[in-house]
Nucleic acid binder design. Structure first.
Lengths: 227, 227
DNA sequence: TCTTCCTTTATAAAATCTTTATAACCAAAG
DNA sequence: CTTTGGTTATAAAGATTTTATAAAGGAAGA
């Protein structure tokens, strides 16, 4: 789902940045960091992160000012992470464009959940990768393949095989490799399986299965998907 | 700014309701109240509030269940207001569709600011979404489905299943996913349930249940709703 | 009580996977 | 040019898994 979206951390405390870096990257996010408000603004403009975590207590500038500056052009979620706990600070930050406000010390699980909420609400930039090869398109997230716009009726194994080859298009995949990926270790050697499924797949995806243009045989080695 | 939008308060403590009523109405919101989860669901369906404030510790039911039920059709913000302060509760609520989570005792100014954030983010969201698939239409807010204009008589489970699949139309949903969403975590594995309900649903929504056009079987994987 | 809906069970039908058989292909050697 | 050995393609039979459907039993509420 989140195929490595970038989160920008603007915080002067190196321990916090370290902690967040570990927590967030182990949840599959890419991380970008800045220790000052100035650097934060530059980093935001450079990397266009999917979300920003902003500390209000920055040494070089008032956090609220950074928030306002960001909000002049940055539409995506901003979560405030601050040691300040007064109602005035919280209300002020939220009214100036922050999406959420957590006080330090914070609980990492809660922060992650609040990040998920923020990103979930900001959907629309919801791009799922679709592999396209001429009139054939493969939607990996939705588990569907189309030929000339028509959804193809593929079995689960056929789809796995097609997806594997398509993901490695242009590259020759050996019989052993394919068998290991689709059927598992024990099936290396059952090249006949593969031939049967390749033939079935060609009947469904090729214009002329006898003269395959997409799923090419590499005799003695394996198969290759044409780019 | 606030064109007297209605906020629904679902909380069993009368003092909290009184406090919120005063606070929110003096900020220009209209108020609707419910003391139990059941009444809350009814009030939400009746008044279509712009935002819901939900207490998790309701006497008659698990707050999370109310949250899930609301989220089956209610797209607008839901803010949790709860005495429970464990990270587990917070994460669980946020991951089940809550927009924000405040613990009691709360600060009214902060609550108001968080309400403003939630409503601000919800601007431009569509009001009464009706999913349409040929002669079939599904009104999530009113919990009704029509075939050729006729209201279909669906049980609550059947409607949940239909709504889930329709909301994810075009995407293959695995048995496990569907079972988890509709029946809960413990029912993953009970694929036979699903088959029975799919057959029942097809009898009601398909022109020819033996040749389904809408609710497609993906053998070995799950089901897919036609786009 | 009666009705409605959920759950479980049983069984037939359909879809998919595996295996087998055979034909076709292709390059190298005779 | 023909043969030969290795590889690949394809159809089709069989075995296995998965799915559809009816129907019976049970729980809950009117």
């Amino acid at each position: 789902m989140n195929l490595s979206e970038t989160i920008l951390i603007i915080d002067d405390e190196v321990q916090i940045r370290r902690l967040l870096e570990i927590t967030l990257s182990s949840s599959g996010y890419k991380i970008s960091e800045a220790a000052t408000g100035k650097d934060g603004l530059i980093a935001a403009a450079t990397h266009h992160p999917a979300l920003i975590i902003l500390d209000l207590g920055l040494p070089d500038s008032d956090g609220i000012e950074i928030l306002k500056k960001l909000r002049e052009w940055y539409q995506k979620p901003i979560i405030i992470l601050s040691a300040r706990n007064s109602e005035e600070d919280i209300v002020h930050a939220l009214d100036n464009g922050a999406n959420d406000y957590l006080t330090k010390p914070f609980r990492t699980g809660e922060l992650l959940a609040r990040i998920r909420v923020a990103i979930r609400q900001n959907l629309g930039a919801d791009d799922n990768p679709i592999l396209t090869f001429g009139s054939l398109s493969i939607d990996l997230a939705n588990h569907t393949a189309r030929k000339n716009g028509e959804i193809l009726k593929l079995t689960s194994t056929e789809f796995s095989l097609l997806a594997l080859l398509a993901k490695n298009s242009g590259r020759v995949m050996t019989h052993q490799n394919i068998l290991k990926e689709i059927w598992g270790f024990g099936y290396v050697g059952q090249t006949q399986y593969l031939r049967v499924f390749v033939a079935q797949l060609r009947k469904k995806i090729e214009d002329d299965p006898a003269k395959p243009q997409l799923l090419i045989t590499e005799s003695g080695i394996g198969y290759r998907f044409h780019e």
